[in-house]
Structure formats: structure tokens, C-alpha cells
């Protein structure tokens, strides 16, 4: 077999005169196991090129990437999908974003529940009690002067705390 063509291509390859197509011909030629001895030293060059072209990142990389981007809280890069190729991806990304805020939702819900029940308890207490001020002192203790605490009867105070603990146990 005549290797003139390959030899010529090779010379032009070293001189950077080959086209991408011709370089592919060289890679294909050197892919075969048996190459004439005088061309053997160059086989490794093209073998390494083919070997390096196969280096790649796994699927887990995609998953991690989507997780990372969705955690930035911005619009998901995968919501735009039309065909079902990456069906699982938006789901995954969505779950990642939800779980990030979930603890806050739960905490906010709990606080709202305690406040509602506490206020309801206080209102029924208002109906019975005569002095309004002490009760407000209890609800808005941060804003009221300290002296307003004094008129609060010990019994009332005890009743209040009991009701509050009741409401707390209700939320559990």
C-alpha cells in the first residue's frame, strides 16, 4: 500500500497547512492498530488526541449545577424546557428551592398561630376584667412604661400566664 498521501498530509499537518477535515483523516488513519514502522512514532500523537476528546464530566455535574443555580434564588434556567428530555431537572431544581424556604414558612405559621390564639384569649379576658391598662401592658410590654405593670393584680397575672400556656399547648 502506498502511504504517500498520508506522508504528505502529515508533513502539511506539522506545517499547520491541513484543514480540519484532513486532520480528521489523519486521526482515522492512525486509529488502526497496524501502521508502517516509519509512521509509528506519530501514532501516539493522534491516539492521545482521540483519547483526550473523550474526557468528560458525568451526569452528577448537571444535577449539582442546577442545584447551585436554583439556590441563588433567581429564575430557574430550566423552566423554559418544552420537550421532556430533562423532565427530572426542573423538579429537582424546584425541590431545592422550596426546601430552602421551608423552615421559615413553618416558623412564620407557628408564630401566627400563637399570636391569634393569644389575642383571642386576651379579648375574652378583657370582657371580664375592669382595668384595661394592665392588660395592654402585658401585650405591648415593650412600649409601655414600667409603672403600668403595677396595677395588674397577681390573680389576673396568674390567670393570664395559665391561658397563655394553654394556648401554647394547643399549638403543639
Amino acid at each position: 500500500m502506498d502511504y504517500k498521501y498520508i506522508e504528505q498530509l502529515l508533513e502539511r499537518y506539522w506545517a499547520c497547512e491541513t484543514s480540519l477535515h484532513e486532520e480528521q483523516i489523519l486521526r482515522t488513519f492512525f486509529q488502526q492498530e497496524e501502521v508502517p514502522a516509519h509512521l509509528m512514532p506519530y501514532k501516539a500523537v493522534f491516539d492521545v488526541q482521540r483519547e483526550k476528546a473523550e474526557v468528560s464530566l458525568g451526569e452528577e455535574f448537571d444535577t449539582r449545577m442546577i442545584d447551585l443555580l436554583s439556590r441563588q434564588g433567581e429564575a430557574l434556567p430550566f423552566e423554559e424546557t418544552e420537550n421532556g428530555v430533562v423532565k427530572a431537572l426542573p423538579l429537582h431544581g424546584g425541590a431545592g428551592r422550596r426546601s430552602f424556604f421551608r423552615p421559615f414558612y413553618q416558623a412564620a405559621g407557628l408564630v401566627a398561630l400563637i399570636l391569634t390564639i393569644g389575642m383571642a384569649a386576651q379579648q375574652s379576658f378583657d370582657g371580664e376584667g375592669k382595668s384595661q391598662q394592665p392588660q395592654y401592658a402585658q401585650t405591648d410590654s415593650m412600649e409601655c412604661p414600667a409603672q403600668e405593670f403595677t396595677p395588674l393584680l397577681e390573680q389576673q397575672a396568674a390567670e393570664l400566664t395559665r391561658e397563655q400556656t394553654d394556648s401554647m399547648s394547643l399549638t403543639r
Partner: peptide
């Protein structure tokens, strides 16, 4: 340009260049 169709599939090329 879509991230999923045009950007993410570049990952292997980017990886090979970065590795080089």
C-alpha cells in the same frame, strides 16, 4: 439561547480546556 440546550452541553468542552 437556552441554558439547558446551548450552555450546559458545553460543559465537556469547557472541562477539557480547563483541564489542559
Amino acid at each position: 439561547v437556552s441554558f439547558r440546550d446551548d450552555v450546559l452541553p458545553l460543559k465537556n468542552r469547557l472541562y477539557r480546556l480547563a483541564l489542559r
